[in-house]
Design a protein around this nucleic acid. Structure first.
Lengths: 155, 155
DNA sequence: TTCAATGCAAAAAATTTGCATCCCA
DNA sequence: TGGGATGCAAATTTTTTGCATTGAA
């Protein structure tokens, strides 16, 4: 579980304001959920958590969509895709060190992967100027992998 | 543009039949589109191409969805995501050498990327058993990159 | 006070499903 | 010929949008 940070929210608030947008209760609420999230969240998951947090009042689902889209446009959040059809979002690299995800195909557990496996490798592409990439890994986590001599070996 | 191959369709037909499914006109039509495709296609794009090809008769959009889902379950096709929300499909590795995609952020051009940049790199993950991965690269293609001394250098 | 942001409902877009009919095996 | 596959329409699911009202600056 990552450390929550008020500093993150503050910095992002500045990004919003500098871009000419208002700092409103719904936007602050959505961001507080994203800052506290350990894994990428679906819009509906963000919306659900807003029910509990957010100090009582809720945020309309449309507003969550609008806020997420705004934040994506500003580069504050980025979309993440696991194998299922769903679209998830997490804070972008300004607030989270560049990383990828490992998703357990059996239990769905998500783990951050760093360092990035494609660090400087992308460069041999005949002139294509690579500026970013999406990578996710799939497989079996420790708990789900078929029991191996691992435990006996002490790893 | 990759070479079309009747052999691909034949092999896949066998996969279908062995799994207890029928070889039907709609399924053959969808597959012929996928085999001929140079880039991953959206379901609606497959459906659109079926209009022209397919020898006149068309295939219902629902059937395209059902066929694609079936093929995905059988591992014949795999989903691909570029930055936009859309879901695309292409033949899986049994019929297409393992590869990834580079997408030009300006003109949308798609190019295959091989060899795979994360070839054996994934293995240092503290016991996580990686079985597959999704990777796409984004940036600017040769035509869209800001003009560089490149042309003068002769690359 | 003003104009952007929100809530709400309705619209679009994307995908799935029920069911009568059709057609591959 | 029997049961899975298809077409068609309707239902879901996901996301966007129009508009009156609210609220941040």
């Amino acid at each position: 579980v990552p450390l929550l940070s008020f500093a993150d929210v503050d910095r992002i608030r500045t990004v919003l304001v500098r871009a000419g947008h208002a700092w409103t209760r719904p936007r602050a609420a959505v961001l507080s959920v994203l800052v506290a999230a350990a894994v990428p969240l679906k819009v509906e998951e963000i919306h659900a958590q807003l029910g509990r947090r957010g100090g009582g009042r809720t945020v309309n689902l449309s507003s969550v969509y609008r806020t997420v889209n705004l934040l994506r446009g500003l580069g504050v959040v980025r979309p993440v895709r696991f194998g299922d059809g769903a679209q998830r979002f997490e804070l972008a690299e300004d607030d989270r060190e560049h990383h990828h995800h490992f998703v357990c195909e059996r239990c769905g557990r998500v783990e951050d992967v760093r360092p990035c496996p494609v660090e400087g490798v992308d460069l041999e592409l005949g002139g294509l100027a690579v500026r970013s990439h999406h990578l996710e890994l799939f497989g079996l986590c420790l708990g789900c992998a078929p029991t191996e001599p691992r435990d006996r070996v002490g790893v």
